[in-house]
Amino acid sequence: MFLSKLTINVRSREFRRDYANIHDMHRTVMSAFSTVDTDTAPRQEQGILWRLEDAYGGFVQYVQSRTAPDWTRLPFDYLTGPAQVKSLQPVLDAVAPGRKLSFRIVANPTYAKSQGPDVRGRRFAHRSPDKQIEWLVRRGESHGFVIPVGGDGHPDVTPSPCPDLAGRKTDLNGKITVLPVRYDGHLIVTDPDTFTDALCTGIGRAKAYGCGLLSLALPRTQRQ
């Protein structure tokens, strides 16, 4: 597994185009990876997840992948400097039962509302912080981790709103709207294999559009 850190040039015309249309940003990220001959969607086959973060008045983009990217394929002025690419193996090696870790994830917490018998439920975004936290706690139960209780007696995680993600696919009915939430907190690994799978494949919906990438670090008190 690889993790890339890209420092974005906000003056780039191509980045401004991508920022205005999340589907274009997805295509730009995918342009750094070779085409694979498989029935599985290329993003899933290569384990590609990404997240865009504010940084020093600009943006940093993190991209995780199973295969090595070639960021020289980006438009010439898309970045302010060379991409930083490192192996995620040390992170994977740190996964163990009972291990407590700090985490950050931008996710798309949604729920389905029934539209009637035999009708597929329409999805809506969770908008209240309590519901957003409940959503992540439930995901933890199926992805091999729990969120511990903090000193205030509540789950040790803080949800923060992110700018809405919007765009359009090429077809006329391809409107995209995602209401992402950033979570920062602590988790405890309960099932290493299931958790590692979640780490590699992402959590939740809208993975092609900047959601689902789980980033880990040692808790502050354990850092050197």
Rank of each mutant, 00 (worst) to 15 (best):
F103T: 00
T177V: 14
R120F: 12
P90V: 11
L136A: 01
R104Y: 02
T170I: 14
H186M: 13
I105W: 00
N108C: 04
N173P: 02
V91F: 00
R66H: 08
S114L: 03
V106W: 00
D171Y: 07
G174L: 01
R66L: 13
V157D: 00
P69M: 09
Q115R: 15
L92F: 13
D184K: 12
A96V: 05
P148S: 06
T177A: 11
Y183Q: 01
V119Y: 08
L136M: 08
P69F: 07
G150M: 09
V146R: 10
F124H: 13
D164N: 14
R182D: 06
I176N: 09
L179P: 04
H143A: 15
A166H: 12
K86E: 15
A125I: 00
E141F: 07
P129G: 03
P75H: 04
V146N: 04
T170G: 06
G98F: 04
V85A: 07
C162F: 01
D152C: 05
D77Y: 08
S128R: 15
T170Q: 14
D156G: 07
S102V: 04
H143K: 15
V157Q: 02
G98S: 00
Y183V: 01
V178E: 02
L172P: 02
G151S: 15
V91K: 00
Q64K: 05
G150Q: 05
E141Y: 07
G121V: 08
V146E: 11
P82R: 08
E134G: 07
L165R: 12
R66M: 10
P97R: 03
V146D: 10
I105C: 02
V95M: 12
E134N: 07
P163H: 09
T72V: 10
R139G: 07
D130Q: 13
H154M: 14
A125M: 00
V178N: 03
H154G: 09
V157H: 00
T67K: 09
W71V: 07
D164S: 15
P69V: 02
G144R: 01
G174M: 02
V178F: 02
R122E: 15
G185E: 01
T158L: 08
A166N: 11
P90Y: 11
K113H: 09
I147R: 02
P161Y: 12
K175S: 14
R120W: 06
A107S: 06
N173F: 08
P129M: 08
P180Q: 05
S65N: 07
R66F: 11
L92E: 13
P97W: 05
R99F: 07
V119S: 10
V137W: 03
K100F: 05
T67A: 12
G167V: 05
P161H: 11
T177G: 10
Q115G: 15
Q132L: 03
D118I: 11
A125C: 06
K175H: 15
Y62P: 00
D130L: 08
L101P: 01
C162E: 15
P90R: 13
P155G: 01
D152Y: 03
K169Q: 08
R138Q: 12
R120G: 09
P180K: 06
A96M: 09
V119N: 13
P117N: 10
G174F: 03
Q89F: 06
G116W: 06
L79Y: 03
G98N: 03
